[in-house]
Simulated scan of single mutants.
Amino acid sequence: MPQLQSKERGAAAVEFALVLPILLLLVVGIIEFGRLYNAQIVMTNAAREAARTMAVTKDAGLAVSAAQAVAGGYTINVAPGTCTPDTQVTSTVTSQVDLLTGSWFTFGPVNLTGIGAMRCGG
């Protein structure tokens, strides 16, 4: 492989310095999107579990406990609906998820909502 002249080495360093911030921004954006997408899935599963528990047991306390168990480490607010025979119960789970880069760019937490529905009575 031929030796690069000193001017060409300097050009490569400048090109790298120009591309690196864009590459890092892209990687951090992918990581943040993945975290938020995972949190959204957790919220939806927690809402679905609350709706299922409410449809089977008709106990709002158990529905809230079931949703909190599914949510793991997230702090959630659960609003289970009421269940009457042959109707559909809907539960809503909301949470605020902090961003990893929030302190860098002064972005606040992101509000996520999960909604689950199930027919009452099994």
Score class of each variant (00 low, 15 high):
Met1Asn: 03
Gln5Val: 15
Lys7Phe: 06
Glu8Gly: 04
Arg9Gln: 14
Ala11Ile: 00
Val14His: 11
Glu15Trp: 00
Phe16Pro: 14
Ile22His: 05
Leu25Pro: 10
Leu26Pro: 08
Val27Asn: 11
Val28Ile: 15
Val28Arg: 12
Gly29Lys: 04
Gly29Met: 00
Glu32Ser: 03
Tyr37Ser: 05
Val42Glu: 07
Asn45Gly: 02
Asn45Phe: 03
Ala46Thr: 03
Arg48Phe: 04
Glu49Thr: 09
Glu49Phe: 09
Ala51Phe: 01
Thr57Gln: 14
Asp59Ser: 10
Asp59Lys: 13
Ala60Phe: 01
Ala60Thr: 07
Gly61His: 05
Val64Leu: 04
Ser65Tyr: 02
Gly72Phe: 07
Thr75Lys: 07
Ile76His: 01
Ile76Ser: 01
Asn77Phe: 12
Asn77Pro: 14
Pro80Ser: 03
Thr82Ser: 02
Cys83His: 04
Thr84Tyr: 10
Thr84Ser: 14
Thr87Ile: 04
Gln88Pro: 10
Val89Asn: 04
Thr90Glu: 13
Thr90Met: 13
Val93Arg: 11
Ser95Trp: 04
Leu99Thr: 01
Leu100Asn: 12
Leu100Gly: 12
Phe105Val: 03
Gly108Ser: 05
Pro109Tyr: 04
Val110His: 02
Val110Leu: 05
Gly114Asp: 06
Ile115Gly: 15
Ile115Pro: 15
Ile115Ser: 14
Gly116Asn: 15
Ala117Met: 10
Met118Val: 02
Arg119Leu: 11
Arg119Tyr: 11
Cys120Tyr: 02
Cys120His: 04
